[in-house]
Amino acid sequence: MAHKMVTPADAQIIQDDIGLPTISRGQRFVHHTITQNLLLRPVHLLGVVIVVAVTLLAFFGPVIAPHNPVIPDYTAMLAGPSANHLFGTDPIGYDIFSRILAGARLSLGTAVSVLAIALVIGLPLGALSGMAGGWIDEVVMRVTDMFLAFPALILALAIAAALGPGLVSAAIALSMAFWPWYARLLRGQVLSLKNMDYVQAATIIGTRPVGLMWRHILPNALSPIIVELSMDVGYAVLATASLSFIGLGAQPPSPEWGAMIVAGRDYLRTAWWTEAFPGIALTLTVLGFNLTGDGLRDALDPRAAHIR
């Protein structure tokens, strides 16, 4: 995926799909139960705290920012961290702290759009593929294979270049890299749930495929999708910032974190704060979603619980 790391869980998605023999998993080393609360492990708690904080910032960041994030202070260009400018200012005189606060909305908003588009494309295709089987399944899966078959950041680059730089085209470009995972994930779930007794029973009493999907399969397939989503928000934030970094994502003066890192790049030596703080914000956010995703997986998907 773009900047989505291929995690062991993703590897499992692929491994299941290409029918590679996997080693029987046997007894798990660390025993988790579904009832175990997400908040019990300190690292996961940290993740949740970060996610909550970033989400709050996405709503209120621009409001609580001490300075206007897009009105520069000419009297303080490249000023170091101080009481007035907590994280210093950038080459134009923007207050970096305010921009980081305001940028949460852009980063998170773009990530959510990316995943929304990915879901809208991926889930129906995955459901269709799993329910219909046969040649439809074959075609859909080969198409997802194609999208997974090459480095997604490069695909995103090609798309973003064609659409012209900007957050909207970045979001479209990145969603192209994320949807195949959801198609595969849901297809896998459909295939395994289809043969469950209760689903079989519903089929016998004449429930139509769409109803079957809505009432019986989707609710049960939800947990792995949620786990995947919680991880992917972080990766989508990272991928957006990456596109901004190479000039194809957010454009100045928008306070997207990747764009902020680019803006200060020539001042790495003379003003480290222009680079350090946006990067820390970015890292923490990705980390937060990652840890939360781990925690959710532990809580919801015991099969993969021991992988961390």
Binding site: Y74, P165, P252, P253
Partner: peptide
């Protein structure tokens, strides 16, 4: 040049005029 755009943007906002800046690559 891009600093100039931002300066103009800030100046104009003080008299209630919005300057919408679109950044692009030099080639575009």
């Amino acid at each position: 040049l891009d600093a100039a755009g931002l300066i103009l943007q800030a100046q104009l906002s003080q008299i209630g005029i919005k300057l919408q800046i679109k950044q692009m690559t030099e080639a575009t």
